[in-house]
C-alpha cells in the first residue's frame, strides 16, 4: 500500500470518480491505523472459527458438508457483519457526535462519497476476512472448496456488507460516540448466535429456529451456506429480506440524522 506517495496533481476539475476514490482511500488508511477496529474485526471471527470449526468440530458433518466447511460460511457472514457494523456505527457516531461530520458536510464533498467510502472499507475488510478463513479452513479443517465456490462465497459476502452497513449507519445516527461500541456489541453477538452463525442453527432450540428469519444475519448466513453447496431455501427470499432490511435501516438512519438538527445548540 503506497499511502505516502499520493498522486495529487492539480486538475482543472475535480472529477467525481476521483473524489470517491480519494475518500475511500483515506477512509481505509485512517481505519487501518486504528487497532481498536482492525484487531477485533479480523481476529475474533478467525479465533471463533478455529475453536468451533476446527479444534472442536473435527470430522462432524452437517447434512452433506463437514462442520468446518459449514462454519466457514457462517463465520464469514459473522465477520462481515462485524466489519460493517463496527466500521459504520462507531465511525459515524464519533464523526457525527464530535462535529467532524459538519465540517465535511460544509465542504463540497458529495454526501454519497462519505457513505461509499465507509462501505468500501467494510467490503475490503470482508474480502480479507473471508480469504483468511478459507485459507485456514483449507489448510487445517479439511475444507475442499472449488475456486468457483470460494469466489461465490467471497462475492456474496462483499455484497452482504450493504444491509449491515445500513444498520451500522442507523446505529451511528442514534448513538453517542462513547456508547456506539456497546450498542453494536449488544446487538451483534446475540443476533449472530440466534441466527446460527456461531453454531449450526439446527442445534439451536426450536423457538430460536422459528425466530431466526426475523433477524437480518440469518439471511446472510443462509446465502453464505448456499454458496458452499449447503442447500437452504430459496436464495431470492433471503436477498429480498436483506433488501427490505436495508431500506428500513436507511429510513431509520435518515430519521436519526434529521433529529440532530432539532437538538443542536443555537
Amino acid at each position: 500500500m503506497s499511502s505516502a506517495t499520493i498522486d495529487m496533481r492539480q486538475s482543472p476539475g475535480a472529477s467525481m470518480f476521483r473524489v470517491y476514490l480519494t475518500e475511500a482511500k483515506y477512509e481505509f488508511i485512517k481505519t487501518l491505523r486504528q487497532p481498536a477496529y482492525v484487531i477485533p474485526t479480523l481476529t475474533f471471527p478467525v479465533i471463533f472459527y478455529v475453536m468451533f470449526g476446527i479444534v472442536f468440530g473435527g470430522k462432524q458433518a452437517v447434512g452433506a458438508v463437514n462442520l468446518a466447511t459449514y462454519l466457514l460460511a457462517t463465520y464469514s457472514a459473522f465477520g462481515v457483519i462485524g466489519a460493517s457494523l463496527f466500521g459504520f456505527a462507531v465511525g459515524v457516531a464519533m464523526e457525527r457526535g464530535y462535529g467532524w461530520l459538519q465540517v465535511k458536510r460544509a465542504s463540497p464533498m458529495p454526501p454519497l462519497a462519505y457513505l461509499a467510502a465507509k462501505t468500501t472499507m467494510a467490503m475490503i475488510f470482508s474480502a480479507i476476512l473471508v480469504t483468511a478463513l478459507f485459507v485456514i479452513g483449507t489448510a487445517f479443517g479439511g475444507v475442499h472448496l472449488s475456486v468457483g465456490k470460494f469466489l461465490g462465497l467471497a462475492g456474496t459476502m462483499i455484497a452482504g456488507t450493504i444491509p449491515f452497513c445500513a444498520l451500522g449507519l442507523a446505529i451511528g445516527c442514534y448513538s453517542a460516540p462513547n456508547s456506539a461500541p456497546a450498542v453494536v456489541n449488544v446487538l451483534f453477538l446475540p443476533l449472530s448466535f440466534c441466527s446460527g452463525l456461531w453454531l449450526p442453527i439446527q442445534l439451536l432450540p426450536k423457538f430460536l429456529q422459528h425466530a431466526a428469519p426475523f433477524l437480518p444475519p440469518y439471511h446472510l448466513g443462509q446465502l453464505a451456506l448456499q454458496q458452499i453447496g449447503f442447500s437452504g431455501g430459496h436464495g431470492m427470499q433471503h436477498v429480498a429480506a436483506l433488501a427490505a432490511f436495508t431500506v428500513f435501516f436507511l429510513l431509520l438512519a435518515q430519521r436519526g440524522f434529521k433529529r440532530d438538527d432539532v437538538s443542536i445548540n443555537a
Binding site: I29, K30, R33, E95, Y98, G99, W100, Q102, V103, P177
Partner: peptide, 11 residues
Amino acid sequence: MLQVAKVPETL
C-alpha cells in the same frame, strides 16, 4: 472552519 470537538486522529 467550524468548531469541532474531535477530528479523526489517525490521518
